[in-house]
Design a protein around this nucleic acid. Structure first.
Ligand code: MN
Ligand code: MN
Ligand code: ZN
Ligand code: ZN
Lengths: 120, 120
DNA sequence: CGCTAATTGAAAAATTTTTTCAGTTGCAGA
DNA sequence: TCTGCAACTGAAAAAATTTTTCAATTAGCG
């Protein structure tokens, strides 16, 4: 963080601490957890952290959510209750990724929709 | 469309015709193609069509896009030029989908990021 | 400790989306 | 073909979200 000439301000630390507590939070979630950080600063901090690759921005259909960019994983979203859970194992068969059309695959994003255990 | 008591208005036809011309359009794209349709009506029509399952809303990181909900397919997004292309073959191995945790998979969404042929 | 570029946040602006509501219209039924 | 009316439209206003400004503050280097 300080490597690139960025300051480790209390506001940034606060946002990071909040992100560490729980994954997949919305801007409002973060705001609630960091009432002492100004709205504009939350926006700017998230932009910065996303730009640095420390945080990942998710678009799961209900607005932006943020998570610490740790290991590669995927999301299961319950269409009934909205619960978002994660799974590690990557169900992609590399052999069946698109090829031959000259597109070079660098990363991917996979979301699985359905019903969580609680919603049957 | 008329089945559910909905009217086939010129505005709705116009939006549908636009969606048929090109996939993955933003609201602005659609507005440009349908200058005669009021902004509010475009919003409402897209909501309606998405609700009816005729249109799919995409979140590929740069705001909402819309496409006719035809066959199941996936997207390749070039991180350089932003080009969005499609591929049909599903690289998912059903055997490696999350299981045992009680989550019932009903659908999925897969996006592949990288470089298109033109961007090297 | 002092300096300075980086940072913050209140206010204002810009952008995007939703709500209102009075007037219009597609279309089912006569 | 004509009528009635629930469905629909769109201008205006409101609400919600995001970005820009800019003067004051501050983290961290020397
Ligand atoms: Mn996650
Ligand atoms: Mn598509
Ligand atoms: Zn994966
Ligand atoms: Zn698939």
């Amino acid at each position: 963080m300080r490597g690139g000439g960025y300051k480790a301000t209390p506001q940034r630390m606060s946002v990071l601490r909040t992100l560490a507590k729980e994954q997949h939070q919305t801007l409002e979630d973060i705001r609630t957890q960091c009432p002492e950080v100004g709205l504009v600063t939350v926006y700017r901090t998230l932009d910065l952290l996303v730009g640095l690759g420390i945080v990942r921005r998710l678009d799961l259909g209900d607005g932006a959510r943020y998570e610490l960019a740790e290991d590669h994983h995927h999301h299961m979203i319950c269409e009934q209750c909205g619960e978002i859970s994660e799974f590690e194992q990557c169900p992609l068969d590399p052999g069946r990724l698109p090829a031959g059309d000259g597109f070079e695959v660098r990363s991917h994003s996979l979301e699985v929709y359905g019903r969580c255990a609680a919603c049957g």
